[in-house]
Amino acid sequence: MIRTFLYTLSISLAGLLTQAAQAQVKPAPAAGDTSIKRTTTDTSAPRKPVKATGEVLQPAKKDSFYITGGGLRLGLDISRFAIHAFQPYRTDIAIQGDVRLGRKIYAAAEVGFNRTSHSDSSYTYKGSGVYTTLGFDYDFLKKKDPNEKNMVYLGVRYGFARNSYEAPNYLIKDGYWGVETPGSFPKTNMVAHWIEFTFGMRVEALPNFFLGWAVREKVLLSKNSPESFDPLVIPGFGSGSKSSQFDLTYTVSYYIPLYKLKFNETKRMEKLKRKEEKKKLRQ
């Protein structure tokens, strides 16, 4: 141990001494006349082609970044409660969420539940199911403040629903034969897939508290319900007998700040500069 210590100590001391010795070395004094004289003959060494080192010589560009908050925006779609007023057989709950992935791109998702219950003189219907949609929103709002969280967006989603439904009893009346045929349709499970296109906006009404609306056009891709018994409602999609459905949502949401996003603004700033220069040149 002592040997090792002494060895390291000696090496470090040696290093210090050499550095001190170099610092003490002075430039050698010039002998005689030290004034600058013009040389009559070219005494310079033959020039060699120098490699282009312009890039190295230029001052290093500084990238400009801005850091803004990222987080999860969770909301409740209150328009589903209004739908219940128009279509009393429907009870829907929908929760929407989105997270910022990039400068303008957001990942968006929705999960929801539907319960359908209807009864009249000709049939009784019961159904319940869940759904989810996953997709992206593109925010095309030009923001003055990079930390602004308002957005006007276009989005696309893929939707998937799982539903089980039944008609515990129905009655088919036949006028000519004078018979009434009672029956029931057993519990049936089905899945449906659709794609939806959305346009809407979200506005920060209070700090981290958002109000937003959106219109959606949903196009059914497939469903595996039996041909003789379409569901009344496909959760998340709407009418079970239609292949496309228009919808409007109104969402109240809260933004939970979770992480920071760093965006490189260099290219964008350069573009802006070029544009300004072009404008000046035109003028």
Partner: peptide, 15 residues
């Protein structure tokens, strides 16, 4: 005979 659901407003009919 196939009992079929015609529409939410019409209910069932025999096809």
């Amino acid at each position: 005979r196939v009992p079929s659901f015609v529409s939410p407003g019409c209910g069932f009919a025999t096809f």
